[in-house]
């Protein structure tokens, strides 16, 4: 239950972190909050030979408006985003979802971008990024690229991030006039990994449902002008298409039932709070 030995780089600038990543040639892991990484290292599921601590990089510790999105730097903790004054009004989905993310003790240290990088299929922040159509900013010594959520997360704990790349920021789109949002999840205990997590966005005659915890990554479906009597059939088809499987926490059948029931609930809630 102790990590194996590793060299530790305590980067003070983004350029230093990128240089260290490039030099390590795939042997390094980025350490921001460490709330998933350290647990995996203590369990020896991960044994990087170099750890690059980016938590002290002041240029990555910012929350700023970037056009129609909120840009969150890689050193920003989950509690810092939750305390951002405009969150409830301008990013209501994140405001609802973040309290489900771990516990306040882990949110005090865990970062937004770290959770996206970890890309657990049942995790709340990747689900919100996919449902809102956000994006991730990646940098390496080779340059910068911006990937949409759909192009970033490829599968279970797998992303398009190259070994020498660092997620320097995440961008979550702000609420637009007329939109409504809802989030909920079922877990065995508060703060545990979600068995199923659902996020909905409604606007006019259109609504969107994102589902986490069933497929190998968050999956989003859009509907326009759907009559209410057809919603259950649509949700049922979606639940089957996600191809959930049995595990020690829940059966595939139970997961499908959660998608059908929680899906309808958040869609109705999101429609009801359109403003």
């Amino acid at each position: 239950m102790k990590p194996r030995k590793f060299d530790l780089v305590r980067a003070e600038t983004t350029a230093e972190a990128l240089a260290a990543l490039s030099e390590a040639g795939g042997e390094a892991k980025i350490f921001a909050g460490g709330q998933s990484l350290m647990a995996m290292m203590n369990l020896r599921l991960l044994e990087p030979s170099v750890l690059i601590d980016i938590s002290q990089i002041s240029e990555l510790s910012y929350i700023k408006e970037a056009g129609d999105k909120l840009e969150i730097g890689a050193a920003v903790t989950q509690v810092e985003l939750l305390s951002w004054p405009g969150l409830a009004d301008r990013l209501p989905l994140l405001h609802q979802a973040i309290p489900h993310l771990g516990h306040f003790q882990t949110r005090n240290r865990g970062t937004i971008c770290g959770s996206l990088s970890h890309s657990d299929p049942s995790s709340e922040l990747p689900l919100c990024l996919a449902t809102l159509g956000g994006e991730v900013v990646l940098q390496s010594v080779r340059g910068e690229r911006v990937l949409s959520a759909a192009n970033f997360q490829l599968g279970m704990m797998t992303t398009a991030k190259a070994d020498d790349e660092l997620i320097v920021a995440a961008r979550y789109p702000f609420k637009k006039p007329g939109e409504g949002f809802a989030f909920t999840e079922v877990a065995q205990r508060r703060g545990d990994f979600a068995i199923v997590a659902v996020a909905a966005v409604a606007s006019g005659d259109t609504f969107r449902l994102g589902v986490g915890g069933v497929a190998d990554k968050p999956t989003v479906r859009n509907w326009t002008n759907l009559a209410d009597e057809n919603l259950d059939d649509e949700l049922n088809a979606f639940a089957w298409e996600l191809k959930g499987s049995d595990d020690i926490h829940a059966t595939a059948r139970y997961r499908r039932e959660l998608v059908r029931r929680l899906g309808r609930r958040v869609i109705e809630e999101a429609k009801a709070c359109r403003s």
Partner: peptide, 13 residues
Amino acid sequence: GKAQRSCLTLAVQ
């Protein structure tokens, strides 16, 4: 002043 897991933090931090 912030409650955190000391088992997920390195001493050097």
